[in-house]
Design a protein around this nucleic acid. Structure first.
Lengths: 208, 208
DNA sequence: TAACAAAGTTTCCTTTTGGAAACTTTTGTT
DNA sequence: AACAAAAGTTTCCAAAAGGAAACTTTGTTA
């Protein structure tokens, strides 16, 4: 039909993405989907194969000619590996802050403990989403710790040099060498010991 | 009909899980909706008035006899003043997830571009707060880029080997050597080039 | 436990979605 | 410019959703 009968398919709605609830103007689900598909570099045909939805159906959804069923939406989210909030949250809010903080090698802020020698990075910036630091792992034995280390958030760890054993509450210990990395939930008990001749050097990034 | 004709409305769906991508039971949207309605102390009739959906329709949704359209879902969320994620991530809030994902050296998922060779780490885990990856910086000149790279979130970068120049929109270029790191807002235009003989190797962690 | 009301379910029918295929537009190639 | 291939849109129809009303179940009171 040439006379677009764009009846308002979408009323306004609120979505709470992370921790803040934001009111989002009438969501253009179709528009949003198209954006996502484009950034994934997919054609309708490819998206069709990934999602199991017909190419024509995808087209109609993108052009807001139909309102997909929940079923269809599930196929979308699973097929394209996105999660539902992503489908709704507006793509951009330009908070063009332009912060930058450089930390030269060995010039972070030292913070020694009995088991680690931490070197905090990027301490000039506050309100960061991530906390990066390098650590020299001095612990050599399980008994160097009194209990699991456990805290909020998620943690990423990369071995910069040496070799360590990574203990965690729900898994068997693993050895990690230079270049190896782990990502884990930090509320799961965890601890590290060096097993190389020299104390291992670790890069750590935490987010909560 | 007393013989429940439960045709599978909801395909299985994977939700953020352990390092072994686990298939979580099909989301019981209906069940969830019923829970919500009950805690709000509403009858189907009242919910019907609030949402504008027929009482019968609500019943069918709750009993998983139909898969609501997105339109219907919006009426639900606006009418009952809930947000979408709430509809899905129902009885969760299991704080003690114990996810863990190890990526051995060089065994991340390759993702080459004209300027970088990215190696994505910890790809088994979804719904991460951070996205870690290593990159070999192939770009050698400003002109290798067509425009500033800019995206949501914050970024932390550590030079694993080699030397780079870090260009950014609001600052003078700086050279970074092995062990040096930067933390910056990724919506500020940025780009990297290698200036060492060998292509520099970078660790990158993004959070948004 | 009969009678009634309120809540919830099912039926029946209309409207809308979703898929296959026809059709149109865009992109690239010679 | 002419054509072919790829990408996207529209059409047509079967299948599924949504609403009104009939029906069933649950709960309350006499």
């Amino acid at each position: 039909m040439s006379e677009t009968q764009q009846h308002d398919i979408y009323p306004s709605m609120t979505v709470s993405t992370d921790n803040k609830t934001e009111k989002i103007a009438p969501i253009k689900l179709g528009e949003r989907l198209k954006e996502i598909r484009k950034t994934l570099g997919l054609t309708l045909e490819e998206a069709s194969q990934k999602t199991g939805l017909a190419r024509s159906t995808l087209s109609k959804i993108e052009n807001e000619q139909i309102s997909p069923t929940f079923q269809a939406m599930q196929k979308l989210t699973t097929g394209l590996q996105i999660d539902i909030p992503q489908l709704f949250s507006a793509p951009k809010k330009v908070t063009a802050t332009g912060r930058r903080d450089i930390t030269r090698n060995e010039e972070g802020k030292a913070h020694p403990t009995s088991t680690y020698e931490h070197e905090l990075l990027a301490i000039q910036l506050t309100n960061k989403k991530m906390m990066p630091f390098k650590s020299k792992v001095r612990a050599r034995d399980f008994s160097d710790y009194s209990a699991w280390i456990r805290h909020d958030g998620e943690e990423f760890l990369l071995v910069l040099s040496g070799e360590i054993t990574f203990f965690s509450e729900f898994y068997e210990p693993v050895n990690l060498q230079q270049g190896d990395s782990v990502y884990y939930d930090a509320n799961m008990g965890h601890m590290l010991i060096s097993i190389s001749d020299d104390d291992a050097l670790i890069l750590w990034v935490t987010a909560s």
